[in-house]
């Protein structure tokens, strides 16, 4: 049974959501190549969008997803709308529906995220190629997909563990 205090901190959760999205966007654009050997960056914003839309769907309406994608476009110098469109379609297609939202087991979450990731990058590649009027570079996209798939289980595990632990005030239950 939920404690009365579980639902007392929507502002804390909202703050956590905003900060994590902001952090993901900054990490995506940060000059990580300065650090020797770090040349690969997972798609952190999509990880954040996916998890928040699973645990707190009310924080991830379409307009928020669009805004995050557009911000990523602007920060990374990509044509505007590419990531916004990709995230919107991918999340709409693979978001968790139903009364329980995101399941509490890791494998189905990873599987669904893999679908989201592939669809998002496929759309980004197509839309980006259209905007650039030439084929976009496929290699960095594939590297990003692999890096994201490798990093996602860790983040998802931490989120699910927190949910299972019942401390729902921050992330949600």
């Amino acid at each position: 049974m939920r404690k009365p205090t579980d639902r007392q901190s929507p502002w804390l959760a909202a703050l956590g959501c905003v900060l994590s999205i902001l952090l993901a966007l900054i990490m995506q654009a940060a000059p990580t190549r300065l650090v020797d050997g770090v040349n690969i960056m997972p798609t952190w914003p999509l990880v954040a969008i996916f998890l928040w839309s699973g645990v707190r769907p009310q924080f991830m309406p379409p307009i928020a997803i669009f805004a995050i994608g557009l911000t990523q476009d602007l920060l990374t110098g990509a044509p505007m709308g590419v990531w916004a469109l990709s995230y919107l379609i991918a999340i709409a297609a693979f978001r968790f529906r139903g009364e329980d939202g995101m399941p509490r087991d890791l494998p189905p979450v990873i599987l669904r995220f893999a679908g989201t990731l592939l669809l998002a990058h496929g759309i980004a590649f197509t839309a980006g190629s259209f905007a650039l009027e030439q084929m976009a570079d496929l290699q960095p996209l594939i590297i990003e997909i692999v890096a994201t798939l490798l990093m996602f289980p860790l983040v998802a595990y931490l989120v699910l563990r927190r949910r299972r632990g019942g401390r729902t005030g921050f992330i949600g239950g």
Binding site: P61, P62, M80, G81, A84, A92, E133
Partner: peptide, 22 residues
């Protein structure tokens, strides 16, 4: 997850891609 808003944002994204070509 409002469907009309979702569709409107898809249209806006498409328009941005079309008009923001480098």
């Amino acid at each position: 997850f409002s469907r009309p808003l979702f569709i409107a944002l898809l249209v806006v994204s498409g328009a941005l891609i079309a008009f923001d070509r480098p």
